[in-house]
Design a protein around this nucleic acid. Sequence first.
RNA 1: GGCGCUGUACCCAAGUGGCUUAAGGGGAAGGUCUGCAAAACCUUUAUUCGUCGGUUCGAAUCCGACCGGCGCCUCCA
Length: 470
Amino acid sequence: MLKLYNTLTKKVEEFIPIDPNEIKFYVCGPTVYDYFHIGNARSFVMADIVRRYLEYKGYNVKFVMNLTDVDDKIIKKSNEERRNANDVTTDYINAFFEDITKLKIKKATLYPKATEHMKEIIDMIKLLVDKKFAYNADGNIFYDVKKFSGYGKLSGKNIEELEAGSRIEVNEEKKDPLDFALWKKAKDGEPYWESPWGKGRPGWHVECSAMSCKHLGKTFDIHAGGNDLIFPHHENEIAQSEAANDKQFVKYWLHFGFLNINEEKMSKSLGNFFTAREVLKKYSAEAIRMFFAQAYYRGPLNFSDDLLSAAEKGLEKINNLVDKINLEIRKNISGAKPGFDFDSYYKRFEEAMDEDLNTSQAVAVIFDFVKEVNRIIASSESVDVNFYDDVKTFLTKTAENVLGIVDFNKKNAGDDKLVNDLIELLITLRTEAKQNKNYLLSDTIRNRLKELGVVLQDSKEGTSYKIGKN
RNA sequence: GGCGCUGUACCCAAGUGGCUUAAGGGGAAGGUCUGCAAAACCUUUAUUCGUCGGUUCGAAUCCGACCGGCGCCUCCA
């Protein structure tokens, strides 16, 4: 029984799908004006883990992530670079897909773009104007926040307090400073679309309402995003969708904690960020995912090299077993079948994940599992290949398919046959040297290979090697 | 000022009334194995959970006060 913390109710609730045959899941995607940073990556990865876990539980998931390709920041960037907005967004959309692929994030069912949903967006605004939830101020359409009685229910804010805070810029055209733009009148040189109110472009929030409605329906199961989207973005989405459709918009709201750097939120505006692609040059996707998975998704998480390295070190322990399993399965030996309670590990894994996605607990289960398997291997003469198959199945279902921290198909050896053959040759020479007690030579071979990123490991069965990243 | 989150070992981090006199990872120390390494395994590393009170047969877990950190309230995952 999966339980999730719902920002809307501020409680951990049992997850009950609207339609058990297909869960509808929407995640706020990137605004494509730049590379996304490793903090953004945390949200994308965690949403991916939620999705994968739902699939582990046997659900079909319709997973939709929007691409915001109309936005002030895009216009700014295109002016700076003196090329049209479309070229800018195309480049960053491509970069986005490159990065999420490297991060082993499963492809969404759909990546709707704002620019391809102008009709739906305009229709929704029209509906809101007709229903008097929005008003026209000289070609700008604003949402009339005071008309929507539930305004503030997600973020726990109320209109009076927000106004008392008064950090909102004053805009003469708005009836109320909290009112937000559904449609922005185009200024000279800005990209625009035709609408009943003249040339312009949609405001930020309305695209998510329009596109989620089109692809997932008026009411859907899960809507997720970073903590900072709770207000105003998601609050405004609720206001738009529920005013337009007269139905509850979303059942479960999930929000991800920030990635901090030196205990401070990583953000584009503070400039204290690393792009995901930068970090991926140094650490594997598995290590990055491990780092995220070891912390609770809602809390803050500090980012540093030391922390990433620690996650990577821990992963190595699992990967050493993965290599061993792959090797043993290739060897295909029949031998003793050790008694092992796989079920209890599946159960513990599921219990952890069911409890509001306690991924740190789930990772601990994986480590416990690895330790027990290693113990069996260390204390047995020959272990049957069937055992290794079962071990592989467990790790595939949990660590690989849900958490994405393991990759059984990752090439440990090089892709290049010549390289592999050369290493094998060196190993043969070193083994001979060892037999002749020429340890000076054998150690030189091992050390020099290590400098090249090839790690040799001796065991009773001979010498194995793995090629690390360099 | 309002709202929300948070404070557990050297570091990261679970646990939210008795199964825990506190998981897991990193680090450190010792040991087994090895020609030596590496890997793996074993052992050690919080009688204590920001502080002070209270509730309870029993609290890291509930309540109160206080101290500290962070976020949102403006674009931001």
